[in-house]
């Protein structure tokens, strides 16, 4: 009893909040109407994500993982079931939950600073400049504040978009294959950058990928989704500390487990 009240005095309500789940998906189903036929995309998806958790949604292309992310973000109304954030039903997009597209979401008519400050219209000029500068530094784009996106590389544009999302201080980040368009070296760098930022800011992250290695390197839990109609096939706990040794037996065992779960052979 004494402990519990001490916890609430320090503002640490984490255990209770995480018991309820930061974000919950309940019996979610999505179907598209196409040429008169009903095409089920997602079927009876149930998922609970803790506050500050890093969850990867993994599946083959066309399995509906992006659809699931769009429904969670409120861009898409589910056909059945619901999505709850902090116990509240999601009815549309909200600045507390920011969706990060591939770098294509950066606004080409604004500078780096203009993009990062885009969601900060309510702040005073000085506060906005301060916040923008903070996130420019966090993603390592010092000296490029006045550059336009078409003058930047793909990886830098992706940094701009992550910074723009972080600047409005959201609780949840949705990332839809954010590094899919980058070359493999830049992708590795961006993964460790994202982990560094996540450890500093402790956002709840939902990250869609079709790359098994990416999922096992990043996530606390990997949600494996089956081919259409998408269902949750398995949820894998990745019990590895960061930074992760990607040649350790445990890492390889987890990765191979997911590989066989998806039904892929271990040899090409």
């Amino acid at each position: 009893m004494i402990r519990a009240s001490a916890d609430s005095f320090t503002g640490d309500a984490m255990p209770r909040a995480s018991a309820a789940g930061k974000l919950r998906v309940e019996n979610l189903g999505v179907a598209f109407q196409r040429e008169g036929a009903t095409l089920p995309v997602l079927d009876d998806v149930n998922l609970s994500v803790r506050d500050g958790e890093f969850v990867c949604l993994l599946g083959p292309s066309g399995c509906g993982k992006s659809t699931l992310l769009n429904a969670m973000a409120g861009f898409l109304q589910p056909t059945s079931g619901q999505v709850l954030v902090d116990g509240e039903v999601v009815r549309g997009p909200d600045p507390r939950r920011i969706f990060v597209f591939q770098e294509r979401g950066v606004f080409p008519w604004l500078t780096v600073a203009g993009n990062i400050g885009f969601g900060l219209g309510k702040l005073s000029r000085e506060e906005r400049a301060k916040r923008v500068q903070h996130y420019v530094q966090m993603v390592g784009l010092q000296g490029f504040e006045k550059s336009y996106p078409h003058e930047l590389s793909g990886g830098m544009k992706q940094r701009v978009e992550v910074a723009r999302a972080l600047a409005v201080n959201p609780d949840v980040l949705f990332l839809d294959e954010p590094f899919g368009a980058l070359d493999s070296i830049t992708r590795m760098v961006m993964r460790s950058e994202l982990l560094r930022i996540w450890e500093a800011e402790r956002k709840t992250i939902l990250f869609v990928t079709h790359d098994i290695d990416e999922a096992v390197q990043l996530a606390d839990r990997v949600v494996v989704i089956s081919a259409r109609p998408g269902r949750i096939q398995q949820i894998v706990d990745v019990d590895l500390q960061h930074p992760r040794d990607i040649s350790s037996p445990r890492y390889l065992k987890l990765r191979d487990g997911i590989l066989s779960q998806i039904g892929l052979a271990h040899r090409i």
Binding site: P95, R97, I98, F99
Partner: peptide, 13 residues
């Protein structure tokens, strides 16, 4: 105008 831009705009409130 790509849907992505409009979605990003409404996402930021």
């Amino acid at each position: 105008v790509p849907l992505i831009y409009r979605r990003a705009g409404s996402n930021f409130g």
